[in-house]
């Protein structure tokens, strides 16, 4: 465990906490894409199947359970909670899951580390996570008033991905035979998707004005 990896995981955890804070205390999910949250729930459900097959560390197990539990509870809140669900921007959140899920599934059956169910699902989870933020970014662009918590949530998610890249660079130079091409390429693609958002986020921060993405 290096500092970049730990900082990345903590930033990921912080993003989830910010989102849960918004949903649980303000009882609002305005500006949050249910599509993205469902894609994350599928991502973690398919990637963390190894909870049942491999033990890596106490830290690893606890974090996996947290990310699984939080992603499914966020989906539950947005779909079922009698107050929270009313704030969901259903008409704006129109991205189709299947346009993302199907290509990822196809890609995973062709490009994986080994042709086993576990490895195909692992690759699928990486491809899906790389694009899962797209419905959220589309929704942000359509939202005239992006509240602070939503902006911070997306910023923390992007920061988590950027820190993971630093973690891979560090590990590549410090560990023998540490090579994960699929993870790296997906990670870089995923981080690039945030580039535009980062640009406007820093602009609004520098000028101290409300975040708004150009249509």
């Amino acid at each position: 465990m290096n500092i970049f990896r730990l900082a990345g995981d903590m930033t990921h955890l912080a993003s989830v906490l910010v989102l849960l804070l918004k949903i649980h205390t303000i009882k609002s999910c305005a500006g949050i894409s249910l599509k993205t949250q469902e894609l994350y729930a599928i991502t973690f459900a398919t990637r963390y199947l190894d909870l049942f097959t491999d033990y890596i560390s106490f830290y690893n197990t606890v974090m996996k359970i947290i990310f699984l539990g939080s992603s499914f509870s966020i989906v539950w809140y947005m779909r079922r909670h009698k107050v929270v669900r009313r704030s969901y921007d259903r008409d704006q959140d129109t991205f189709r899951h299947f346009f993302l899920i199907l290509p990822c599934l196809l890609l995973a059956t062709f490009i994986n580390e080994k042709l086993t169910a576990k490895e195909v699902l692992w690759a699928f989870s990486l491809y899906l996570e790389a694009v899962a933020i797209l419905p959220q970014l589309v929704l942000l662009q359509r939202t005239r008033n992006i509240d602070n918590l939503t902006g911070q949530y997306v910023f923390l998610l992007g920061a988590y991905r950027a820190l993971y890249i630093l973690n891979w660079i560090y590990r590549y130079f410090t560990e023998a035979r540490y090579v994960h091409w699929i993870t790296w390429i997906c990670g870089v693609v995923q981080t690039l998707l945030y580039a535009d958002f980062f640009y406007y986020y820093f602009q609004s921060w520098k000028k101290n004005v409300k975040l708004e993405l150009p249509a």
């Binding site: 995981d9 890596i56 990310f67 580390e113 080994k114 994960h180 993870t183």
Partner: peptide, 10 residues
């Protein structure tokens, strides 16, 4: 290569 399968990241 045995450790190819070890995936310790989240």
């Amino acid at each position: 290569d045995d450790d190819e399968g070890v995936k310790d990241e989240l």
